[in-house]
């Protein structure tokens, strides 16, 4: 690559990274060291780690993000696997991705319609004689909707990993006498694990800070860090504290990335 070419490529990327990745993160970190009176201080962090409320909220967020990721994974892996075996798989894949074209708010409102007292779900429950139930504003409905929204982001990387898998490995495994289960457990799954990890990264982090759904579907019965950030920026205007929570989320993201990356080092990539 000639020197001119290098700069030609580097400048737009560098500008992009600088303006839209590094600068915002730096601003958040910077803001997090200021209190309401615009004094440079560490009190935001001290408050965060001293206050039982924020720690409990963090625990809550991590727990729900974990559950959402777990359910998403449990549904997505078999789906991606079956999808990969199908004849018109591109079409099926398109159908899986289709819901991501719809705005998340619209999807949430659609679920309000489905889960409400006279909604589709309760009409069905009444029909089969189980009577109406309170579905909205329960933890279960929150996890259900969040999982539904995250599923495409988990299926895609797993599907791609399955696609990249060399069929020769599977044939070899079967030729050498492995059962279907053994082939799956010892060949297919380990080789597609990078896809699962990529899926976890794509699902876990956004799930930590869901706030629209916690209110619309969860009725604020589930409080996550996203709720607190929203409040600090929009109501109390304590941007310092909001940024502090943002920094905590960024650190959490780095940790998750590290945890899901370390093991793949050995794999040929």
């Amino acid at each position: 690559m000639t020197k001119r070419n290098f700069w030609g490529y580097f400048v737009p990327y560098g500008l992009w990274l600088g303006l839209f990745v590094i600068a915002p993160v730096a601003l958040i970190v910077y803001q997090s060291f200021f209190n309401l009176d615009h004094q440079l201080t560490l009190t935001n962090y001290a408050d965060y780690f001293r206050s039982g409320v924020y720690l409990k909220m963090t625990l809550n967020s991590v727990w729900y993000a974990f559950l959402i990721t777990l359910f998403t994974g449990l549904i997505s892996y078999p789906t991606a696997y079956v999808l990969h075996q199908l004849k018109h798989r591109q079409l099926w894949l398109l159908l899986v991705i289709l819901p991501t074209w719809i705005n998340i708010l619209l999807k949430a409102y659609a679920f309000i319609g489905i889960f409400s007292q006279d909604g589709l779900a309760n009409t069905f429950l009444r029909f089969i004689g189980l009577g109406p139930h309170q579905l909205l504003f329960t933890n279960a409905s929150f996890i259900f909707v969040a999982t539904y929204i995250q599923i495409p982001f988990m299926i895609l990387p797993i599907y791609n990993a399955l696609d990249d898998l060399n069929p020769a490995f599977i044939n070899a495994s079967q030729d050498l006498g492995a059962t279907h289960w053994q082939t799956f457990r010892h060949v297919i799954f380990p080789l597609t694990l990078p896809g699962v990890k990529a899926g976890i990264q794509a699902v876990f982090i956004p799930s930590l800070s869901l706030f629209m759904l916690t209110r619309l579907i969860g009725g604020n019965k589930v409080i996550t860090l996203g709720t607190a950030i929203e409040e600090h920026f929009l109501t109390t205007m304590n941007w310092g504290m909001g940024s502090t929570i943002g920094v905590v989320l960024i650190v959490a993201m780095i940790i998750v990335m590290q945890l899901t990356n370390d093991h793949t080092k050995g794999a040929a990539k």
């Binding site: 206050s51 409080i223 109501t235 109390t236 304590n238």
Partner: peptide, 19 residues
């Protein structure tokens, strides 16, 4: 004062956490 607004919101957040 901003500090009092903060207290209101902190207490309220606690209520939402508990409920």
């Amino acid at each position: 004062a901003p500090r009092v607004v903060q207290t209101y919101n902190d207490r309220y957040l606690e209520f939402k956490m508990h409920h």
